Computed example of a mutant assay.
Amino acid sequence: MRRAALLLSALLAAPAGVPAQVDTAAAARDAAEQLATAGERLADTGEGASERIAALSETVRAYEEGLEALREGLRRVAIRQQTLQDELDGRREDIAELLGTLQVMSRAPAPMLLLHPIGPLGTARGGLLAADVTPALQAEVAELTTALEEAAELRALQDSARRTLEEGLVGAQQARAELAEAASNREDLPRRFAEDPVKTALLIASTETLDAFASGLASVVDQELRNIIPDAAERKGTLRLPVQGSVLRGYGEADAAGTQRPGLVIAAAPRALVTSPAAATIRFQGPLLDYGNVVILEPAPDVLFVVAGLAEAFGQAGQVVPEGAPIGLMGGVTPSADAILSGAANGGGANRSETLYLEVREGQETVDPLDWFDRSAT
C-alpha cells in the first residue's frame, strides 16, 4: 500500500496529463464551415459584370481565409496531439508500475491489506492513506481517459480534414479562374483617361528604374476623359494591404544581398488574390523591368501605389477601380491537401512562399507605405 501511495503521489505531482484545454478541434471545424460558406458563394455569384466580379472576389477571399484557418487549426491539432502523446509516453513507466502494484494488492486477502508490521497504529494510518488514495486514483484514471479520448478525436479530425481540404482547394482554383476571366474582360468601369500605347512602350524602353518610370507616367496620357479623381487621403493609415500576408521587409530594409528598396516586401500564399486598397485610377498595368507584372494605382492626387510581383494582372490604364477590386493574382503553385496535412503535422504554418512588392510615392518621393496602411494588420 505504501508503495502504491508513493507512486500515486509522484503521478499527481507531475505535470497534468490534460492541461487547461483549449478546444483546438473547434478551430478546424470553424474553418471547414468557412470553406462550406465559400462554396455556397461560388454557386451564386450574380449575373452582372460588376456584381459577379465583386462576388467572385469575396468568394476567393473567403476560400483564402478558410484554407488558412484550416491550416492553422490543423497545426494546432497536430501540436496538441503531440503534446498529449509526449505526456502519456513520459508517464508510461509510472502508470505501469502503479498498475502492477495495484494488481498485486488485488490478489492479497482483503483483511491482510490493512495489517501493518508496527501494529494497530500503523494499520490505522494505512487505512487513512487508502481512503485518501482511492479518490485520487479515480481522478487520475478519469484524467487519462479524457486524454485518450481527446487524442482519438484529434486523429479522427485529421482524417476528415483531407476531404475538406481537397474540396476547398478545388473550389478556390475554380473561383480564381472565373475571377481572372471576368476581370480581364471588364469594360464596365469608368475611365479617367485614354492611354497612348506607343508612348507607354517608349517610356518602358527608355527607363531603367522604377523611379524614372513612375516620374514619366503623366506623358503616356493620350486624352483626359472624365474628371474622376478618387481621393483616399482622408483614410491614410487605415487602408488594408493589397494581399493577405505578412511583411517580410519594411521600408528601406536590406535583403540578404544587401539590396535596399523603398517599399514593403509582403509574404503571401501561392495564387493569393491581390486587390486595390482603395478606389483608385489604374495608371499602368503590365510587365516592367525586373519587377514582373506591375499595377500602378493613383488613390489620391499625386499619390501612387506601386504593386509589383504579380503573376497575373487585371485592368487597363485609365480605368477607375473601386476599393477591393481584383488587380491580380500571385504566382506559385497551391500545395496539395497531402502537403498541407504533412506541413501541419510537422508544425508548419501557412505556406507564404510568394512575395509582393508595395511602394508608395507622394509626388516625386517615396514614403513608408505603412504611413498609408493599417500597421496592426501587418
Rank of each mutant, 00 (worst) to 15 (best):
A69S: 12
R261M: 12
N293P: 05
L88I: 13
D132T: 09
V18G: 08
V333M: 15
G343L: 07
P322R: 00
I79K: 05
G48F: 14
A267T: 10
G318C: 05
P301D: 04
E40H: 12
D368Q: 08
P135G: 03
N293Q: 15
R361H: 07
A124M: 12
G343C: 09
Q319Y: 00
Q364I: 03
L129W: 07
Y357A: 15
A27F: 03
R52Q: 15
L329E: 13
A25H: 05
A308V: 02
A272D: 12
A345P: 06
I282W: 01
P15A: 13
R75C: 04
L98T: 06
E33Y: 06
A337Y: 08
E58G: 06
V295Q: 07
A10C: 10
G171K: 00
M105A: 14
Q260L: 10
L114S: 15
D374I: 08
R2E: 14
A55N: 09
A268S: 15
T164C: 02
T101R: 13
V274I: 14
E87H: 12
R61S: 14
E149N: 10
T101S: 11
V104G: 10
T238A: 11
S57V: 01
A280C: 00
E93Y: 11
A10E: 13
A26T: 08
T366L: 00
L297Q: 05
E47A: 14
L217M: 00
A130V: 11
T378F: 13
S219Q: 11
A62M: 13
V360N: 04
D44E: 14
W372F: 07
V320A: 01
V243E: 05
